[in-house]
């Protein structure tokens, strides 16, 4: 929502301190978010995405804003066909922008089975490993030399967007790309309160304070 209303540059500024959470623009964007919430059935910020997607499948809801992995859920778990049973569109205002997150594995210092861990990491990072994992989950590879034929339907369009040099890339909040744990957990709290109280100005102020406290 913030990304669509503010645009990618100001959105990124939210996480680097360049965009003021208490500014009129942000408050206006949060106000719009408020209106969207009013039209949704979300009663808690902890609502899960699968039940929401199920409602779209049942026809009780029109759309859901979700990530790539929803394609894995619809296509594989629910056996629906892309374009005939479901379709995708960029969230309003976010055309040409890619809100990214990545799954990563770390190699801890002092790992007990270092050789095995390195082997696993090499496998994950290889073209073959990437092409085995990603289509299953419903995500796209981090490598540019992956086999594009493995990414069909929705994933083909996602991959095309991702590799298009004109696409602007921003980081996802929910998945810890732009905020550290402390800031992230404070935002969780503020969002939970916002969904109950629906007060955009208070929400912005709370996050501005959390940002300053956890910098």
């Amino acid at each position: 929502m913030l990304l669509g209303e503010l645009g990618p540059d100001k959105y990124t500024g939210l996480w680097t301190g360049k965009t003021d959470w208490k500014s009129a623009e942000v408050t206006a964007a949060l106000d719009t978010f408020n209106k969207v919430l009013a039209a949704s059935d979300i009663k808690s910020s902890a609502a899960d995405w699968q039940p929401a997607a199920d409602r779209v499948i049942d026809g009780a809801a029109v759309y859901t804003v979700m990530g790539d992995w929803l394609d894995g859920y619809l296509g594989r778990a629910k056996k629906l066909t892309f374009k005939t049973d479901y379709d995708v569109a960029a969230s309003p205002g976010s055309s040409g922008v890619y809100d990214f997150l990545s799954d990563s594995f770390t190699l801890p210092i002092g790992a007990k089975h270092r050789a095995a861990a390195e082997k696993w990491l090499t496998e994950c990072g290889s073209v073959q490993g990437q092409d085995l994992f990603n289509p299953q989950k419903g995500s796209i590879p981090a490598r540019t030399d992956a086999d594009k034929a493995k990414y069909q339907n929705y994933l083909a369009t996602a991959l095309k967007d991702w590799q298009d040099p004109a696409t602007k890339i921003v980081g996802s909040l929910t998945h810890g790309v732009v905020a550290n744990n402390a800031f992230g957990s404070e935002i969780d709290t503020a969002l939970g309160i916002f969904v109950q109280k629906r007060d955009p100005a208070a929400f912005g102020a709370a996050i501005a304070k959390a940002y300053a406290d956890t910098k």
Binding site: S44, A46, T189, I193, V195
Partner: peptide, 17 residues
């Protein structure tokens, strides 16, 4: 229903924070 603030309590806040 974790992280549902309607049923949040001090014990849960303590854990998550």
């Amino acid at each position: 229903d974790q992280k549902n603030i309607k049923i949040d309590t001090p014990a849960l806040y303590m854990w998550f924070t």
